[in-house]
């Protein structure tokens, strides 16, 4: 199972779509690795530089409806090959969220108020997240600040993370 810890990239915008996460022109690639240089290349966010801002980060915290648009699993793959295994958002588009779990990656939804609080408290600071899956808890750290936040994870989603994704789960069961 993947680990869901690391330094945070804050993306302070709602409705970030899969074309922004990985533009369609790269969908001709047939390997996940080839997507690595293009993550968030077309993100429409003032001052954002994908090459510099994603460096050494492995968790994304963002607003509502992350991953809307196309069904392309290339979006979670582009995150995966860049070391991002965890996205925390106020909400996700359905297909993107399912794709994350189908790849054994974690997409966690937190209430509006909590997301606002995290942005207000941690955004702009060098922030780290540690995930305690058993307790369904994130530990968020920056400077001398520490916050613990609980998240919801269904048994089904947890079993997808543990069994290494939906293919093995379904083939053994159905």
């Amino acid at each position: 199972m993947k680990k869901f810890n690391g330094k945070v990239l804050f993306l302070d915008r709602s409705d970030i779509n899969t074309d922004e996460i990985i533009p369609a022109k790269y969908l001709t690639e047939v390997s996940k690795k080839a997507l690595k240089p293009y993550l968030l290349e077309d993100l429409n966010l003032e001052g954002f530089n994908p090459q510099i801002d994603t460096r050494c980060k492995s968790v994304i915290i963002t607003r509502a409806n992350f991953g809307c648009g196309s069904s392309r699993e290339h979006a979670p793959w582009a995150l995966e090959v860049n070391g991002f295994f965890l996205v925390i958002a106020q909400s996700f588009a359905r297909i993107f969220r399912q794709n994350m779990f189908n790849c054994g990656m974690l997409a966690a939804e937190l209430p509006d108020k909590t997301i606002n609080y995290i942005f207000n408290t941690f955004s702009g600071k060098e922030t780290f997240i540690e995930t305690i899956l058993e307790k369904k808890e994130f530990i968020i750290k920056a400077d001398d600040l520490i916050e613990k936040v609980n998240f919801v994870l269904s048994d089904f989603d947890l079993s997808l993370l543990k069994s290494g994704g939906w293919v093995e789960y379904a083939d053994s069961k159905y």
Binding site: S71, R72, I95, F96, Q98, N99, N102, W166, V167
Partner: peptide, 11 residues
């Protein structure tokens, strides 16, 4: 659906 869900659909 994404590619993994499609894969399971095919299989």
């Amino acid at each position: 659906v994404g590619t993994t869900a499609l894969e399971v659909g095919i299989l």
